[in-house]
Simulated assay, not measured.
Amino acid sequence: MSAALRRHPRFISLEGGEGAGKTTALNAIRAALQARGHEVVLTREPGGTPLAERIRALILTPDAEVANEPLSAEAELLLVFAARAQHVRQQIEPALARGGYVLSDRFTDSSYAYQGGGRGLDPAWIADLERRAVGLQPGLTLLLDVDVAVGRARASGRDLGPDRIESEQDDFFQRVRAVFRDRATDDPARFQLIDASQDQAGVAAQVVAAVTAYLSKEGGNG
């Protein structure tokens, strides 16, 4: 496909580190959009289609047959983009084409943060994959930012145990957070930084306000 990126105004992503509260925020945004009469497709990455969900499981919770084989950073990145390419073609683009809003828990910014910042892979390689395999960016990205120690303490309270990436050390997540924040600084037209240190109700109110302002700015899309 063409190695060009396009931003779609009805595509909204949420990003952030562990324990940032994305699930509550996503549900609040979906309710706000549906109240305006919009179709909303709520999805996630890696995942979003049956095949992409299989890839997600391979990355995050590998089965016993491969669990003891270390997954290289390069293989991790390529698997994430394989899932993303499938997700875009089979889920995201069809929903946008029929006039719906797509609300995604993570998108390509997470690759820059986790595989670029966390794993140390070349961001130029990630950018090339983004152009060639994805070709699409959200019109709005909400970055739920929280101190790593606070976010990890929240995440440790979940019923489920940590997955392969959640099991990384604090310095990994500090690098992830730094890249997220740098990307938000470098692209203020797309990013809205959300203070996720507050309680869930406060975060939900802040993200809904940000989306409402975005819809007003976009005019006909709201």
Results as ranks from 00 to 15, higher is better:
Gln206Ser: 15
Leu193Cys: 12
Glu18Thr: 12
Asp105His: 06
Asp122Pro: 04
Arg158Glu: 04
Phe172Asp: 05
Gly117Cys: 07
Phe11Gly: 00
Arg154Tyr: 05
Arg154Lys: 08
Ala124Trp: 06
Gln198Trp: 07
Val211Phe: 00
Ala85Thr: 14
Leu26Arg: 11
Ser110Gly: 14
Ile55Arg: 05
Asp182His: 15
Arg158Asp: 07
Tyr112Ala: 04
Ala82Lys: 08
Asp187Gly: 10
Ala127Ile: 02
Arg7Trp: 01
Gln91Thr: 14
Ala73Gln: 09
Ala155Ser: 15
Ala210Trp: 05
Gly161Ala: 15
Gln34Tyr: 06
Asp63Asn: 15
Asp163Pro: 12
Glu218Cys: 11
Met1Trp: 08
Glu168Ser: 12
Ala155Ile: 11
Gly219Tyr: 03
Ala28Glu: 06
Asp187Cys: 08
Leu78Val: 14
Arg181Ser: 12
Arg131His: 03
His8Trp: 10
Ser72Trp: 09
Ser156Gln: 15
Glu76Ile: 11
Ser111Gly: 10
Ala83His: 06
Arg177Met: 08
Leu79Ala: 13
Asp145Asn: 12
Arg175Gln: 10
Gln137Ser: 13
Val150Ile: 15
Leu193Phe: 07
Leu14Val: 06
Val208Gly: 06
Val150Asp: 15
Arg98Asn: 02
Ala124His: 13
Arg98Phe: 02
Asn27Gln: 15
Gln174Cys: 11
Lys217Val: 05
Asn27Gly: 12
Gly118Trp: 03
Arg36Leu: 11
Gly37Trp: 10
Gly139Arg: 08
Thr24Arg: 14
Ala133Thr: 04
Asp186Met: 12
Arg175Ile: 11
Leu5Tyr: 06
Val179Asp: 11
Gly100Ala: 13
Arg30His: 02
Leu136Thr: 03
Asp63Cys: 05
Phe172Val: 10
Asp187Tyr: 07
Asn68Lys: 13
Val211Leu: 01
Val176Cys: 13
Ser13Trp: 02
Asp182Trp: 12
Glu39Pro: 10
Asp105Arg: 04
Gly116Phe: 10
Arg56Met: 04
Arg131Asp: 01
Val88Gln: 06
Val208Glu: 10
Val40Gly: 01
Ala83Gln: 04
Pro50Lys: 05
Arg152His: 08
Pro9Val: 01
Gln34Arg: 15
